[in-house]
Design a binder for these strands. Sequence first.
DNA 1: CGATACTCGGACAAAGTTTGTCCGAGTATC
DNA 2: GATACTCGGACAAACTTTGTCCGAGTATCG
Lengths: 158, 158
Amino acid sequence: MSGGVEWALHCCVVLTSVAEPVPAARLAQLHDVSPTYLAKQLQALARAGLVQSVQGKSGGYVLARPPASITLLDVVEAIDGPDPAFVCTEIRQRGPLATPAESCTTPCPISRAMAKAESARRAALRSVSIADLAGQVDVDSGEGTLNRVGIWLGADTA
Amino acid sequence: MSGGVEWALHCCVVLTSVAEPVPAARLAQLHDVSPTYLAKQLQALARAGLVQSVQGKSGGYVLARPPASITLLDVVEAIDGPDPAFVCTEIRQRGPLATPAESCTTPCPISRAMAKAESARRAALRSVSIADLAGQVDVDSGEGTLNRVGIWLGADTA
DNA sequence: CGATACTCGGACAAAGTTTGTCCGAGTATC
DNA sequence: GATACTCGGACAAACTTTGTCCGAGTATCG
């Protein structure tokens, strides 16, 4: 899995605490990561419609929807791509004992089992929203934690 | 995910229908895939203790345990590796507003959510055995299907 | 209203992982 | 005891992920 998923998720969480756009460089500074590479991830989020990009002098990124309506799955799919990790290549239709194509109306048992596992993972990811995560942060690290981050993000470059 | 997982799973399923060792080359012939690369996957299965390798003239691979005791998760981990796809790099401990290390006694909310999703996937994979898959094949493609494959595997090179 | 400085956006390289291949070590057969 | 067939790990190619750079566009400030 792309490691950029972690960066993107943290960005989404901290973005819940701001109203004004935050530049990618500022978010990179906060997390101490490569500014240019983080920019790429944010572009992917923008393409997926999760964040809105604002150009110009005081531009940056803002969440495009309410945090409660953005799920973990949305972010993971935006970065990693929507395709499932396992892809069935129908090898049962190959080789000397190949199953004839007309008998392959349903996916093979292996494909079905893998799809079920993938489905379980996706369901788990879909059940958690960015708002849930933001709430957990304040529970873990103290009430005003996220708010302080929001203030820092809005302040001038330190 | 490694595409070799599919090959390895198909091999395990067909190996339920034989008692004598089957060479890697024969399995590759059956599935019409690269013999040398399939050999590598089978080596991984052998290292994980799922199949037993027999050397010498009439050697090959046999399942090392009863098919009902080998789960999908076993095979996936043997090929893809045991590490979960998502790894938390603790970026909350980095940057100007870093959370002090002594406050990081529990994983961060993001890490927890991802771990839960991974756990759901693993549980789904663990709930299916090779024996289950073999049974499904006979349901899907007819009663003696797997048996015929077993006979072909044991016959001389065609 | 115009120059400016700051923003995003996509095109361009480097690194790591997956995929694929090869030849040598070892053993049951004959 | 020679032989032929097997596995096993070392070796290269292709692709994805990671990381970098410069150009296009827009709100700000004079």
